[in-house]
């Protein structure tokens, strides 16, 4: 196709028309949904991996050896007053941050003063929802572990 013909084609290009109606309100995400999902995944990689190793070892009786190395590493970190917080931060802190970020990314809060009600709506973003579910699961499991360990 010659440049002149292409220009003519572009001049006559039929574009999709949008009949979008202006919304009554603008819903702005508090934090970016995609970024939250990606960061959330990074935040839960380590605890997820640890959980998988535990499941492999104690449920399926497959010992990859990694769990013992990790245990030793955690114990070493736990002993030092400068590094004791790294373990809890990695296993509980980061998944909690992931929960907060992904919840904010898909939620919309609206206060209706005349009825005195707070309307919460959730956008169905599957990636954020999945990260949210996995993060909640991880926090729940480690929380239960903490309770059972400390109440024994």
């Amino acid at each position: 196709m010659k440049p002149e013909d292409f220009e003519k084609k572009m001049e006559g290009l039929s574009t999709p028309k949008s009949d979008a109606v202006p919304p009554k309100e603008l819903r702005l995400a508090i934090v970016s949904a995609q970024r939250s999902a990606v960061m959330g995944i990074w935040f839960i990689v380590m605890p997820w991996f640890l959980l998988m190793c535990v499941i492999m070892k104690y449920i399926f009786h497959i010992n990859l050896g990694i769990i013992d190395t990790l245990k030793q590493m955690m114990r070493a970190l736990d002993k030092s007053p400068q590094t004791w917080w790294i373990g809890p931060m990695m296993l509980m802190g980061l998944p909690i941050v992931s929960i907060i970020m992904n919840t904010l990314a898909i939620s919309h809060f609206q206060w209706e003063s005349y009825t005195g009600s707070l309307i919460v709506s959730i956008r169905m973003r599957w990636l954020n929802l999945s990260v949210l579910v996995v993060s909640t699961g991880i926090v729940g499991i480690f929380f239960l572990y903490l309770i059972t360990e400390n109440c024994r």
Binding site: K9, L13, S14, T15, P16, K17, S18, D19, A20, V21, P23, R27, R123, M124
Partner: peptide, 20 residues
């Protein structure tokens, strides 16, 4: 999404414009 109907009609409109 919130405006499911609007979205479907726009996507249908878009799919009719192969050149675009």
């Amino acid at each position: 999404v919130d405006s499911e109907e609007e979205k479907h009609s726009l996507d249908a409109e878009l799919k009719q414009h192969d050149d675009f």
